[in-house]
Every structure is written in C-alpha cells, then in structure tokens.
Amino acid sequence: TLFEALYDYEARTEDDLSFHKGEKFQILNSSEGDWWEVRSLTTGETGYIPSPYLAPV
C-alpha cells in the first residue's frame, strides 16, 4: 500500500525524512508506533516520518 503526505514536514533529527504535501511513500516498517520508516517515491530517500501526516493512496 502506498501512502501520500497530507502536510509538509521538516526533519528534526538525522533519522527523520523531510517531505512535501502530496509526496508518495512506500512503507518499510510501521511497527515502531507513530513513526514509520518509509522510502520516498519522489527522492528515493529513506527515513522516519510521523504516520499522522500520511493517508493511504
């Protein structure tokens, strides 16, 4: 399942991933609570992002 960003987000740590509203992601790991490890389909980068900022496509 692909997810889309509902809002912009600016990374706060080196493990976070900055992204823009509308960017699409592949979920790599969603078992860590509200922070999911994802791969951006736009940039190819991986990192953690807050799951409340995402919605299924």
Results as ranks from 00 to 15, higher is better:
T1F: 12
T1S: 11
T1A: 12
T1G: 14
T1V: 13
L2P: 04
F3E: 01
F3A: 05
E4L: 08
A5M: 03
L6G: 03
L6D: 03
L6I: 11
L6S: 03
Y7A: 10
Y7K: 09
Y7H: 09
D8I: 01
D8K: 03
Y9M: 04
E10C: 11
E10G: 06
E10W: 08
E10M: 12
A11F: 03
A11S: 14
A11C: 06
A11E: 03
R12P: 14
R12G: 10
T13H: 14
T13F: 15
E14D: 13
E14G: 13
E14S: 12
D16E: 15
D16K: 14
D16S: 15
D16V: 13
S18D: 04
S18L: 02
F19V: 08
F19N: 00
H20C: 08
H20M: 12
H20E: 08
K21P: 02
G22N: 05
G22E: 01
G22L: 02
G22S: 04
E23S: 03
E23H: 07
E23C: 05
K24Y: 13
K24G: 02
K24L: 15
K24A: 05
F25V: 02
F25C: 02
F25H: 00
F25S: 00
Q26V: 15
Q26E: 14
I27M: 06
I27T: 04
I27Q: 03
L28A: 01
L28W: 02
N29G: 10
N29W: 06
S30N: 12
S30P: 07
S30I: 09
S30W: 13
S31D: 13
S31G: 11
S31Y: 09
S31A: 13
E32L: 14
E32T: 13
G33Q: 12
G33T: 12
D34L: 14
D34P: 08
D34H: 10
D34W: 13
D34T: 10
W36I: 07
E37C: 10
E37T: 06
E37I: 11
E37G: 03
V38C: 08
V38T: 00
V38D: 00
V38P: 00
R39M: 14
S40L: 07
S40E: 03
L41W: 07
L41S: 04
T42H: 10
T42R: 12
T42S: 13
T42A: 13
T42E: 15
T42L: 14
T43P: 00
G44K: 04
G44C: 08
G44A: 05
G44I: 01
G44F: 07
E45Q: 14
E45K: 15
E45V: 10
T46W: 08
T46Y: 07
T46S: 09
G47H: 06
G47F: 06
Y48T: 08
Y48A: 04
Y48F: 13
Y48K: 14
I49M: 04
P50E: 07
P50T: 05
P50N: 10
S51N: 09
S51Y: 12
P52K: 15
P52S: 15
P52L: 15
Y53F: 12
Y53V: 06
L54P: 02
L54V: 11
L54Q: 03
L54H: 03
L54C: 03
A55R: 13
A55N: 08
A55Q: 12
A55P: 04
P56T: 06
P56A: 10
P56D: 06
P56F: 08
V57F: 08
V57R: 00
V57P: 05
V57N: 05
V57H: 07
